[in-house]
Amino acid sequence: MGALGPALLCFLVMFVYPLIRTVMMSFHCLPSISSRSADWEFVGLKNYTSLFTSSVFHSAMGNILKIWLIGGVATIVLALLFAVILTSGVKWKRFWRSAIYLPNTVSAVALSTMWLQYVFHNKFGLLKQLSSAVGLEGLAKINWTSPQYLFWGMLISYVYGCVGYFMLIFLSGIERIPRDLYESAILDGAGSFKQFWHITFPLIRGVFRTCVTLWTISSVNFFTWAKMFSPNINVKTVTPVYLLYNKVFGEANTGTVLDAGSGAALGVLVALLVLAAHLIMNRILKEEELEY
């Protein structure tokens, strides 16, 4: 029983207590982040209401919704595509698998630099040169850091960095499906698409659910790429966590009044979003343990 002690202690100290404290903070105005609770001023729901009326907060919520939905569909479709291709008996499967996963092992700072300073660069960028080489002048003209495209540029690079991970998860799901199911389908004359639709897809529902949940958590916590694409807060790329970082840990050069209470309210909202996502996912994609 004592063996449970350290883990339990760690859980209570680093999860339960901070959780309660953040919730409390979100109803208070704090003079500074390190001030003791005696100095907190109770403000009720004010932190929340001022968030709900802030247009920057609205942009942040809109941005993560777009990241979650559009980025999520793109990532999951691509990851599934690669997983299906890799399990269809291609040559050098292990090489492809390692190579597609490779971007996930690279620091997001390095990856986003690759995208921003090279791929999207408006002078010598890969996309610009590639598209003008094949005659796509319209694409070559796109300036990926312009207000219309900055968000999409960020989303494309984020999706590129994520696909490998989700592919691995799908891959392990598909590999658990018994081979003989496919063999009998081939005997019945089912083509590749039919096999996917009638065997693979239904049997990886559980994995699919895992992927959606993982994607939801990562898009709610979206921060690193937003920070790399816009070092200073930018309405086009801001996310709730970015806003929280700004409010609590602050940018001195904008004269921000650091506001830990408002930041805590944001933290609570982010956590509620994750919770809601879990509940909805459980409802839509009920976990059915399929026996095969």
């Binding site: 207000p147 200073n232 807060i233 904008t254």
Partner: peptide
């Protein structure tokens, strides 16, 4: 020499769009 970061963010965003002709 004084600014609210959120107002600054909104203003900069709109000005970027203006400068880009959007």
């Amino acid at each position: 020499s004084q600014e609210d970061p959120e107002i600054r963010a909104i203003f900069n965003d709109a000005f970027n769009e203006l400068a880009a002709g959007l």
